[in-house]
């Protein structure tokens, strides 16, 4: 999502220098996007989380892996027995939960970024091929998509991770594979829709190369749904990675990944509610922020909902 944000930042002042020009599409988009309060909140939450993640080493009060043996299972600061230096309490081996959550944001964002990038590149490529070449290629790709869609995604991800071995990287690969069908379908549908349009026919007749057609003419027109899907893909990726971590197949200790933290904290549900509650909340807030922003993007990009 970083690309979109920087684009916006870069473009807005540029437009300001030339007041007489008609409003650029980006500016129009930004106006519509910023009308949506939820989307703005989502965006700002993501910005804050990103800043926290980037500067985790500076922001976090402690190292995420340092074990304070004398402070195991310390409650949050506002509870009796809590300490201000361990604001959200400590985990069973005496690590600061707040610090782990802040460092964990890195992993969650990283997971989202890697999964979305991977699935976007592969999914778009396959979708373009399927939509453009039709026939055998299309059939082969779309039947594979059908097969993948028929399998419960979590089960598929679980099996893929089991094959590759439990680790964060493998969990990301598994999730990227599982979400592929959505990108393929969106791209293909957009390609099919564009192919019937006159400008495509015109450039074809004019002898434009296949590559040019695919990437210069057609792809930009499929961007809107893909951007929305990619934003929402962040939340799916974070949720799925947490689920895999929860089932013990994601990041391995002592990595402060949120899902893994939850799995580890499960046994303390009644004795130390904070160990269990905060990682879950962190996941919820982050995912919610991405979904809010994704919704805003959809509304801003989807011409059907234009007022």
């Amino acid at each position: 999502m970083a690309t979109i944000d920087t684009k916006i930042d870069a473009d807005v002042p540029a437009v300001a220098h030339e007041p007489p020009a008609p409003p650029s599409p980006l500016r129009e988009f930004w106006e519509r996007f910023s009308e949506n309060r939820g989307a703005l909140i989502g965006m700002w939450v993501i910005v804050v989380i990103t800043v926290l993640a980037v500067f985790a080493d500076v922001v976090a009060p402690h190292s995420p892996t340092q074990q304070f043996a004398q402070f195991q299972l310390l409650p949050p600061a506002w509870q009796e027995g809590g300490q201000l230096s361990f604001f959200l309490g400590t985990d069973p081996v005496g690590r600061d939960i707040l610090s782990r959550l802040i460092h964990g944001a890195r992993f969650s964002l990283f997971i989202g970024l890697v999964v979305v990038t991977l699935s976007l590149i592969v999914g778009v490529a396959l979708g373009l091929f399927a939509g453009f070449f039709k026939g055998v290629v299309d059939n082969l790709i779309m039947r594979t998509v059908d097969i993948m869609m028929a399998l419960p995604s979590l089960l598929l991800a679980l099996a893929v991770v089991a094959i590759l071995g439990p680790s964060l990287v493998n969990a990301m690969i598994a999730i990227a594979i599982v979400v592929l069908p959505q990108y393929i379908r969106i791209t293909r549908a957009a390609v099919l829709a564009e192919m019937t349009k006159e400008y495509v026919t015109a450039s074809r007749i004019a002898g434009a190369s296949v590559f040019r057609l695919m990437f210069i003419n057609i792809l930009p027109n499929a961007m809107a749904p893909l951007i929305v899907q990619a934003t929402l893909g962040f939340s799916t990726a974070i949720l799925d990675a947490a689920a895999l971590g929860f089932l013990g197949l994601g990041a391995q200790p002592p990595t402060p990944e949120w899902g893994t933290m939850l799995a580890d904290a499960r046994e303390f549900i009644r004795r130390a509610w904070w160990v269990m509650t905060f990682p879950g909340l962190a996941i919820l807030i982050t995912v919610l922020a991405f979904n809010l922003m994704g919704d805003g993007l959809r509304d801003a990009l989807d011409p059907r909902l234009k007022k």
Binding site: T65, Q67, P92, V93, Q252, P253, P254, D264, E267
Partner: peptide, 12 residues
């Protein structure tokens, strides 16, 4: 009861 936690402690 929790080998991963035990491993974390030994690691440290």
């Amino acid at each position: 009861p929790n080998a991963r936690r035990m491993a974390e402690l030994i690691q440290a």
